[in-house]
Structures are given as structure tokens and as C-alpha cells.
Design a binder for these strands. Structure first.
Lengths: 227, 227
DNA sequence: GTATTATGAATGAAGG
DNA sequence: CCTTCATTCATAATAC
């Protein structure tokens, strides 16, 4: 992503010989910039949040209780001692499972399931069936989420299709949504400036190329239902 | 920005201020899209990271487990924006949904859900997931009401609700775990329309090994919770 | 303000 | 693999 190499907008027409240009309204431009700005802010704050939490707690020894209490009827793993209903992964198990899912995304082989089950059994009661089901569900729901996320939610559409139908559920305009603090500071910046956030590349080790983004800016109709 | 003086005639929109438009080249458009996409991916991954870590604190604090922890985070962000965390159907939407439920009686297909979602989106913010959940819940609770009504006739008294009288039955707020520091920082963020990143899950999809087998065919002799 | 209810959402499990 | 069901949790709405 080389924003720095991009020419400023004034020369936009020269890039294509003045033949083909995309045109955005002032409002659309504004919203788009704010969208990016908000992303930047979110990422930064997420990173900071993660840092602070990571330093404050340790995965192994995190025992800061403060205003909280440990209930005697709940094991440290979170299982009800007399719980007799469906299996619930302990946090540790969940974390391991999530990591497994992230790594070899896909249904593990049977042997793999046995292996995982054994490892997880070190952190709480579990059976192979639980692991199997978990992966099945995890996968299915990941897909469903993705499918739902297919709903177009691009900025332009948001600006144009502002509903005022519901009296008690008023949809707020994006312009108003951006609180003055974060928006203002970024508003002066051209979005070329905020291309990189510190410390994020470390987290982005997985993704090499953001090639499969949603090409929503090219679509002329933002009808999500007809798609 | 001085280039708002350029006014291509074909896109003269009636903006409140006047007829100013911004012009972007195709390339710039492309880069802009990439930028947004990358931010989306980053945010997604950060949230995942936060989620997995939050489960650790959950463990440490001894609260009951179950839900993901990106939720409170989103809540803090979204609360400022639309005033609510979870979707609430507008009266109009509810009416339509009820009518649908009476008609279709039971199983709305995926395409049907898309259709319904689109129609309802004309009357307020909604997503396919909302519609899906609504029908699921509607059916389940309708069925449950029937059961209860039946139970009144035959005094079955097969009470499965052997609930423990543990003090932890009190509601434990997950927000308490995430200290005010985090909530504070996200409070002023606009997470609007970014809670669902389009096509991001698609990016993070990995190659899956096709394993078409049935490892666990409903063995009834697995019981882990009878203890 | 606090307690209760109604209900959106999450998820383990089962069926196909 | 996909969908569906049942249960549970958390919270908006409401009652108190």
C-alpha cells in the first residue's frame, strides 16, 4: 500500500488522460475520509487496549480480582461442579480451539481431533465429540457471518439511504456520528497520511495481500437483496 | 481543497451547499478501497485477539463464561452511536415479521431471509442475521409456549430445572472485567457500520482439507456431563 | 433507582 | 458439509 506514491487529487485527470475519472460528491468524500479515519482510530486504540491489557494481566497468573468474587460453586475453569447439561469450553480450551481454528482452518482429521481432545482434556472435561462439534459449528458460523457480511454497507449507501421511518429508533447521520474529537483531527489530514499504524504489522503477519476486499465502490447499485 | 471547483456536469448532485464534486482517478479509487479493506482486516484481527485474551480474564475473575468478549467492546463503541447494542425491531418491522411468521409458518429459506431483510430495511436498520435470529427465536418460543400449555393439562412435573441456588446466579456484568479504561477509550469511537466488515472473513479464510468422513456417528455412550 | 420480563443473540448438539 | 433445534445468556423494555 503505497499511498505516498499516489498523486494528489488535483492531478487526477492527468492520470487517465482526463478520460475516465470517478466522481464523488462532497458528502461522499467526506464520509469516506471519516470512515478511514475512524478505522485508523479504532485500530490504534485496539492496539493500545491490547497492550495495556496484556501488560496488566498475565495469561497464566491473571488473578486480579478487585470488585469481583470467586464463586465457590464454579471451578476455576468455569464449569459448574454439578453441571449436567451441555459441554461448555473453558476459557483455556476455547483459546486453544480458536488458535487451532486459525491455524489449520478446516475440519481436522480424526486423528487430529483425538490429539486436540487429549490436549484440551488437560484443561477440563471434554470429549472428541465436543471437539468435532465445535469445529463444525465454528466453521459453519464463520461462513454464515461472512455471508451476512456480504450485505453492502458502504459509506455511500449509508449516506444515501438514511432512514427516518422509525420514530423511536432514529438512525443517526454519519456526519453526526463522528465525534468532533477524532474526526476533526483527521479531517485536516488527507488520508494518504494515515496509511500505517505502528505495531500493527506485527499482528498482520497472516495477511499478505488484501486482495479480496469488497469492491463496493465500483458497484452502481447498492441493492443487497438483488445481489 | 481547491479542486472542488471542478464540476463535471453529469454528476451534478444537489448538495446542500451547491454543486461541488470531488474527482478521483481510478487508481486513487483503487488505493482508497484497499486502504479501507486493510483497516477492516486489521480491526477484525484485533478484535479476535482481544476476544481470546478477554476469555483469560474471564477465567481469572471467575465469572461465568459463555459469551465472546468483543461484545462489550462493540457495545461501548456502538452505544454512543445508535444508543443500543442489540437490534430491536421497529413496530413496523415487527408487524411485518409477525405476518411473515404467520404465513410462511416455519422455515424461511436463505433467499427468503434476504428478501425479508431487504423489505424490512426500508423501515429501519436491520441485517439478515437479525431476521434469521428472529425467526429462530419466534419459532422456539412459540413451541415452548405450546409445551407449557400442555404441561398445565398433564401435571408432568418432570422438572428438569434443577437449578442450584448459587449466589452466582446473580447477573455478572462482563463490562466490569474490562476496566473503565478500555470502555472509556472506545466510548468515543464511532464503530458505526464497521461492526460488520464486508468480505473480511473471506480474506481470512484459509485452505481447507476436504475430509469427507463421519468420525462420530451419534454415539450415545459419550457422557461427560453426568457427574 | 432496582427488580422483572421480554427478547435478541450465542452456541452446543443433532439431523440430513 | 449444511441446516435446524434447544438451551442459555445478556440486555432493552418495563414494572415496581
Amino acid at each position: 500500500m503505497e499511498w505516498e506514491n499516489q498523486k494528489p487529487p488535483e492531478t487526477a485527470e492527468e492520470l487517465n488522460g482526463g478520460m475516465f475519472v470517478k466522481v464523488m460528491s462532497d458528502e461522499q468524500m467526506e464520509v469516506l475520509r471519516k470512515q478511514i479515519a475512524v478505522y485508523g482510530v479504532i485500530c490504534e486504540q485496539l492496539v493500545q487496549l491490547h497492550k495495556s491489557m496484556a501488560s496488566q494481566y498475565d495469561l497464566a497468573a491473571g488473578t486480579r480480582l478487585g470488585n469481583l468474587y470467586c464463586d465457590p460453586l464454579i471451578t476455576s475453569a468455569g464449569h459448574r461442579i454439578n453441571g449436567r447439561h451441555r459441554w461448555t469450553p473453558t476459557p483455556v480450551q476455547l483459546q486453544i480451539l480458536e488458535r487451532m481454528f486459525d491455524q489449520g482452518n478446516g475440519t481436522p482429521t480424526k486423528q487430529k481431533i483425538k490429539d486436540i481432545t487429549f490436549e484440551l482434556s488437560q484443561h477440563g472435561q471434554i470429549s472428541e465429540m465436543n471437539v468435532y462439534n465445535w469445529f463444525q459449528n465454528r466453521r459453519a458460523r464463520s461462513k454464515r457471518k461472512q455471508q451476512v457480511g456480504t450485505n453492502l454497507n458502504n459509506v455511500e449507501s449509508e449516506v444515501e439511504t438514511e432512514e427516518v421511518e422509525s420514530p423511536n429508533e432514529k438512525k443517526t447521520k454519519p456526519e453526526d456520528l463522528i465525534s468532533s474529537k477524532s474526526a476533526e483531527s483527521f479531517d485536516q489530514l488527507s488520508f494518504y497520511e494515515m496509511s500505517s499504524s505502528p505495531g500493527i504489522n506485527d499482528i498482520m503477519e497472516k495477511m499478505e495481500e488484501p486482495a479480496s476486499y469488497h469492491p463496493y465502490l465500483h458497484t452502481e447499485n447498492y441493492d443487497m437483496a438483488s445481489g
